[in-house]
């Protein structure tokens, strides 16, 4: 790629080649169509230019032609739709065993937290060959997390999580842009995605000082007093949180929701929004009490409760965790 006249973006993720393949297909079809119309207009305009003694020949139209040039383009467009939808499904569906990274956007910076506790600002270090799932939220207005070299983009909203994922393939340093206009320094709200070989990455990661994110969450869980109601040993005033993450939860109003990241988040900030069946709306809101970073740690902790006691982060589970007691649901 030319440094001064880039005509094609870097391909640095597994998705990049797939997006480019579809793009090239679209370019070809669009190129052929444009060519046909330009040639047709030019040829007809020259061939039938006004000449003395040669009148126009009137033609009313042709239903067969109309149907033909409606159906054929629509058929071609259907191929765009299907290929595009399949690709989009991949882009929007992170593999189940992805490494999770939390991203908090604010005017005008990107804050990144790794599960191991590493924190970065306007930078994201990732290894090649690993599925990375980004769990993102914004503290203020809407931003958009855009890495051209990976062909991914996802708006980052206040008040909820959105996710994106990628698997980097080529070590290097790539642009991170904010793609949704967010005020004064929108164009400065960028940074670098640093893709490293796994060994290098391990060295970089080992240099980090902080505690793992779920561990931070566990401490918060205790210090904020969550553990007094959400107990693991006996039935507390709130549901036992073990094993609830990503499972269906029956609500007091009869609906069932999946206890995903957004549900856990909402249950902390706005506990009475979706009450778990069999519980009372007694939990106070933590809106304004926990920051977005602390929320991420709490969510990471709740998620870690799904893992067996020998989990990677080494979080101990209560010794006599009952298999699936009644009301094991988040409130």
């Amino acid at each position: 790629m030319s440094k001064y006249l880039p005509l094609w973006p870097d391909q640095a993720s597994t998705m990049a080649g797939q997006v480019d393949a579809l793009y090239i297909y679209l370019l070809l079809v669009a190129g052929v169509m444009t060519g046909l119309i330009y040639i047709a207009v030019t040829v007809l305009a020259i061939k039938y230019r006004r000449k003395p003694g040669q009148d126009a020949h009137q033609i009313e139209g042709s239903t067969i032609l109309e149907i033909t040039w409606s159906i054929i383009p629509f058929g071609v467009m259907l191929t765009f739709f299907i290929w595009g939808a399949v690709l989009y499904f991949k882009e929007r569906t992170p593999p189940a065993d992805s490494t999770e990274v939390y991203v908090v956007a604010k005017q005008w910076m990107w804050k990144v937290e790794h599960m191991e506790g590493q924190r970065e600002i306007n930078q994201l270090h990732v290894p090649t060959g690993q599925d990375i799932k980004l769990i993102m939220t914004s503290q203020d207005v809407i931003h958009s997390f855009f890495i051209p070299a990976f062909r991914i983009k996802q708006d980052v909203l206040p008040g909820r999580y959105t996710t994106a994922w990628f698997k980097a393939t080529k070590p290097g340093r790539y642009h991170l842009f904010c793609a949704e206009y967010c005020g004064t320094n929108h164009s400065g709200m960028g940074g670098d995605i640093v893709v490293m070989e796994p060994q290098e990455y391990a060295v970089w990661m080992a240099g980090g000082p902080s505690a793992p994110l779920p561990e931070t969450g566990k401490q918060l869980f205790a210090s904020l007093g969550c553990s007094t109601c959400h107990r693991f040993d006996v039935q507390g005033r709130g549901p036992n949180l073990q094993g609830v993450y990503n499972k269906p939860v029956l609500l007091e109003d009869g609906r069932t929701v999946i206890a995903d990241e957004n549900y856990v988040r909402e249950s902390i900030l706005n506990p009475t929004a979706k009450i778990v069946s069999g519980f009372k709306p007694v939990m106070p809101t933590f809106q304004g009490i926990v920051s977005d970073e602390q929320l991420n740690a709490l969510v990471a902790y709740v998620k870690s409760l799904n893992q067996p006691p020998t989990g990677t982060a080494g979080l101990q589970q209560p010794a006599a965790a009952p298999a699936q007691p009644q009301n094991t649901q988040v409130q």
């Binding site: 797939q18 997006v19 579809l22 793009y23 679209l26 669009a30 169509m33 444009t34 119309i37 330009y38 207009v41 467009m77 765009f80 739709f81 290929w83 595009g84 939808a85 399949v86 690709l87 989009y88 991949k90 882009e91 958009s144 855009f146 051209p148 062909r151 991914i152 983009k153 793609a179 949704e180």
Partner: peptide, 25 residues
């Protein structure tokens, strides 16, 4: 006709989900 053809066809790129993710905004 010349400009609308290009404008219309590139609209199809944006309607194609997998491409729109990269080129929108």
């Amino acid at each position: 006709i010349g400009l609308f053809t290009i404008g219309g066809l590139t609209g199809l790129f944006l309607a194609t989900l997998g491409i729109d993710v990269h080129v929108t905004d």
